[in-house]
Computed example of a mutant assay.
Amino acid sequence: MLVQRLNRRWVQVKVPGCGWVRFRLSAKSKGAELPSAKTFRVTFRNGQWHVAFAVIPDPIVAPGTGEVIGIDRGVTITAALSDGRKLNCPQLTTKERAQIRKHERRAARAGKESPKKAAEYAKVARLKAREANRRKDWCEKTSTMLARTYGLVRFEKLNIKNMTRSAKGTFAEPGRNVAQKAGLNRAILAQGWGLLRQRTEHKAPGRVKDVPAPYTSLRCSACGWIEKNSRKSQAEFVCVSCGFTCNADTNAANNVAVGQGGIPRPRRSAGTGGVTAATSRSSAREPQPNWVGIPLF
């Protein structure tokens, strides 16, 4: 593959069957060396041409501090870090959302297969592509920050595919609250949870771990008591055992940071097949380590 730099901003690549094609470098590639890639891809999307090179970047070196960070992902707060920081993925502005609704209304009133309908939907696609570009840019910058700052990054393990599954159901058994579930699915996908986890793993291989998600938001990060009533609201956590008060997302991130996720299933009593009284309550104390006595003489 032939790639030649023309100046600081412009480069040309020889496309088979087309010849030399000039393209402008992105902002982060202006001062970098030309990519040593074997393949590239030219695409046309939303009225713009793009060329992408298949390059495997070098992993980011660990800072060497050994610091561990836990990340709790949510819809209201995209990523809550165990050190207290809260990171939010950029979304479309109120004006841009109003523009999308305006163009969708105009497209609905336009004639079927008319040029006006196609033009209005093209404007909607450009606005949604702008949101996707912002999300990708945020994930790239945030994952780079995590890889450079922390020695070990722990994410709350989420099955995003199952979480965003449609509730439409079938003709024989239609689902319930389909519109509300569809809105929740869009809100989840707009946060970029999977892309943030994926790009962090690419930039910090071997330094990204997953922690089981169950009970991370209900466990007190101070005493380990698990109680559903401790989660007062989306943002407030007050432990009913020790009185520890913290932001609910930060508390969950602290549990993720120390690898505290999930508890054993309730054990069934022999003979009756029922759940034992010790494990059937809504709260439970985190098991304490068994200390082995060492003889002094």
Rank of each mutant, 00 (worst) to 15 (best):
N7T: 06
Q12T: 01
R22C: 09
A27K: 03
S29F: 08
E33K: 14
P35K: 11
A37C: 04
T39E: 12
T39V: 02
T39S: 07
R41F: 10
F44R: 10
F44E: 11
N46G: 04
Q48G: 04
W49Y: 13
H50T: 11
D58H: 13
P59M: 01
E67V: 13
V68A: 06
I69E: 07
V75F: 03
T76G: 01
A79L: 13
K86C: 11
L87R: 08
N88F: 01
C89L: 04
R101L: 08
H103Y: 15
G111M: 03
G111I: 00
G111R: 12
K116A: 10
R126M: 10
D137P: 00
E140Q: 15
R148D: 09
G151W: 04
L152T: 14
R154V: 14
E156T: 06
K157C: 11
N159G: 00
K161N: 11
K168L: 05
P174D: 05
R186K: 15
L189N: 11
L195S: 01
L196G: 01
R197W: 04
G206I: 05
G206S: 12
R207K: 08
K209D: 14
V211H: 02
A213C: 15
A213K: 09
A213T: 14
S221M: 03
R231C: 05
S233N: 08
Q234W: 12
F244R: 03
C246Q: 15
C246L: 13
A252K: 01
N255W: 15
G259R: 13
Q260D: 06
P264Q: 12
P264F: 11
R265G: 10
R267W: 14
R267M: 07
R267E: 13
S269A: 09
G273N: 01
G274W: 07
V275T: 13
A277N: 02
S283L: 06
